[in-house]
């Protein structure tokens, strides 16, 4: 049978990726040596994309790995883990990833907006997963940590915490100046 019992470890994520609707990489982070070279990584991404872009089925076994995914307009989000990994943990990572990006882009999850906010997306990915370990699974906490320049979010769409946070920020910065 397959590898048997999984060694208890925090390292549960093998890779995160966002691809566009041609299967090109917009962001991809690999956390172990499953695909050591950029070439192998891109081949894997292309193959994975070809398998997943038509059917929106959320989960697939691919090349011996479990991949959970989600798409919106022209973006495809992937979280990849070992085939023995708890699928629901991977799904929770994907949700954290997608929802954080969605909040950062103000629900406007599409390629153009993503590229305009690439800096914040990098920071969000960094806050969700550190070297293969799930760091934060709550999208609100992630967005708060990323601390984007959220001065121009319409007040109605902000949570109370966000309003307070931004107020605090503004006071702080005005004092510092």
């Amino acid at each position: 049978m397959e590898g048997g019992i999984l060694e208890p470890s925090l390292y549960s994520i093998k890779a995160l990726a966002i691809l566009d609707n041609d299967g090109n990489r917009l962001l991809a982070k690999y956390y172990d040596e499953t695909f050591p070279t950029a070439k192998e990584q891109k081949t894997f991404e292309k193959n994975l994309f070809n398998k997943t872009h038509r059917a929106n089925a959320e989960i697939i076994m691919f090349e011996g790995l479990t991949c959970v995914y989600k798409s919106n307009v022209d973006l495809f989000f992937y979280v990849i883990g070992s085939s023995q990994e708890n699928e629901l943990i991977l799904a929770s990572v994907l949700n954290a990833f997608y929802d954080s990006v969605s909040q950062i882009l103000r629900k406007n999850v599409e390629k153009r907006a993503l590229l305009d906010n690439m800096d914040a997306i990098y920071l969000a990915a960094d806050e969700i997963c550190d070297g293969g370990i799930l760091l934060e699974a709550d999208p609100n906490a992630v967005v708060q940590k990323v601390a984007i320049r959220n001065e121009d979010i319409p007040l109605g769409e902000q949570t109370v915490a966000q309003v307070l946070q931004s107020a605090k920020e503004q006071i702080k910065w005005s004092l510092l100046k």
């Binding site: 990489r25 962001l27 950029a38 800096d119």
Partner: peptide, 17 residues
């Protein structure tokens, strides 16, 4: 500078050596 740094991160992320 933030924009330039993002570009640097982008090319690294694309697998440029």
């Amino acid at each position: 500078c933030g924009h330039i740094l993002t570009k640097v991160l982008y090319i690294i992320n694309q697998g440029e050596i």
